[in-house]
Design a binder for these strands. Structure first.
Lengths: 150, 150
DNA sequence: TGTAACTGTTATGTAGCTAAACAATCTGAT
DNA sequence: ATCAGATTGTTTAGCTACATAACAGTTACA
């Protein structure tokens, strides 16, 4: 009862989940800002990054890696494909799946975007030194590992 | 090039923002799980917590405290009011604003929910000891303070 | 050979916001 | 005392980012 009015987050303060969300919202908004209208959304960028990093990955594999449903990937892949950033290649031996391959444009675009995203991250986490960034990364990873594994 | 296929998050791994989102999604999903169908969503719970913690807060003040637009609060407050958890009280001296007051039911409901949320947090952050939780809280707060102040 | 599992896809729905406009109300400078 | 500008709650419309359920085609395997 010492300072009843100063902090509006009196009861919420103790909840890590609340602060996790607020931090996420802040960072996500900055991502959108720095990308501008021509950029990709976080989810599309993540998918492109995954395809570039693991060429030939399947849509289902990609969905699992990103922790979303398969159905949610379709429109996302459509978007990347119609922008000529990735291709759906048939896989000999399994006519169900389609291997996702980045195009030359896709890789070039990704490299250009990475520079933007690095600038975004530098700005968002400017208040943290390198040790703190490592710590945050480690703790976030622990949170994900400790909960359900999706 | 040492291990090309083992980690699907080859390129994404370096981005703190990505891991922040994944951790948030994990925690948020657990919140929904533990609340069940009868529970409140995170946003409504947060609003209720804020009203309980700072009784008489205005809708605009609440929106600012939660970092959302005023327009987004209306339906949320409607929901809490129609569930008889909070009231909109007129404020003498300013007929524009409405002071938000928790009802008795609202406070009781909040207290009950807090127990659930504490259990949820205990489960989500079970992999972290108390020091790590404090560190995570401090770093998340720094992230929010370092970016734009919403 | 038949059944179960998996793939990509579609359709539909929902949560959780934002942006823009509005009337009512308040503030403050002149 | 008045009038421009700001603020409040609200409505409407729209958007993003998902999830769920069903489906036909394909594969694996007992």
């Amino acid at each position: 009862m010492s300072e009843p009015e100063t902090d509006p987050e009196i009861l919420l303060r103790d909840f890590l989940g609340y602060h996790l969300k607020r931090a996420y919202v802040t960072v996500h908004a900055d991502f959108r800002d720095i990308m501008g209208d021509a950029g990709l959304s976080t989810r599309v960028f993540s998918a492109l990054a995954m395809v570039v990093g693991q060429q030939g990955i399947t849509q289902s594999e990609l969905a699992r890696a990103l922790g979303v449903e398969r159905s949610g990937m379709v429109a996302l892949i459509d978007e990347l494909e119609s922008a000529d950033l990735i291709r759906r290649d048939p896989v000999p031996g399994d006519r169900r799946v389609q291997a996702l391959q980045p195009t030359g444009r896709g890789i070039a675009r990704f490299d250009a975007l990475v520079a933007l995203v690095r600038a975004h991250e530098a700005r968002c986490f400017a208040g943290l030194d390198d040790t703190e960034k490592d710590t945050l990364l480690r703790l976030l990873h622990k949170v994900r590992a400790g909960g359900n594994s999706t």
